[in-house]
Amino acid sequence: MNYIWNFQDVFDNWWALAIGAAGTLRLFVVCLVLGMGLGLIIALGKRSRNRPVRWLSTAFVEFFRNTPVLVQILWFYYALPIIAPIEIGPFLAAILGISLNSAAYSAEIYRGGIQSIEPGQWEAARAIGMSGLQTLRRVILPQAIRRIIPALTNRGVEIFKMTTLASVVAYVELLQQGKLIASLNYNPLEVYTVIAAIFLIILYPIVRLTYALERHLARSD
């Protein structure tokens, strides 16, 4: 093949990609915080003694885990304004789709982590007078989170890459900007190559950071 790669047109549009990268990072941070935060709450809900709470949490997990995120984003964008008087923009639709889906997945990770802690840890904490919530915060979660960091890292990476799905509702992020550049310059191959590289360049240091965190938490071994 004698395809001549030409990255010049891509680099000439660096500012468009920079805007896209900013949009991607913004969506990522919001979805990471919301997804993992809500995931913890849902996980605790699944362990609740209250039956309706338990049932609702399970229903949430099964619904959002077993439907495609792409469809969820489209649905929030197009259907929500029809069934409820809420007009939502691409950013909000993407946040809802990605966060709720991630919450469903991370809830199961948290639940597994919490369950893996020996019952003796609960008992020891309760036996010095700690409440259930104090035990969770001081004794159970610190140990559970340490065990699930690799799984949560996976989830975080997945969230970062899922942000590209927001392009389906024309949210300004990397892929959306790439599509724009490609359609103007007829160079999809180069554009998507660069976009893949940008993802790798941003994600890899973040992942390395979680390794460092893991090592830091392993100091008590």
Binding site: G120, Q121, E123, A124, A125, P142, R146, S220
Partner: peptide
């Protein structure tokens, strides 16, 4: 307790 149940992260 029999199994001590110390908090290993502290």
């Amino acid at each position: 307790f029999q199994q001590f149940n110390l908090f290993p992260h502290m």
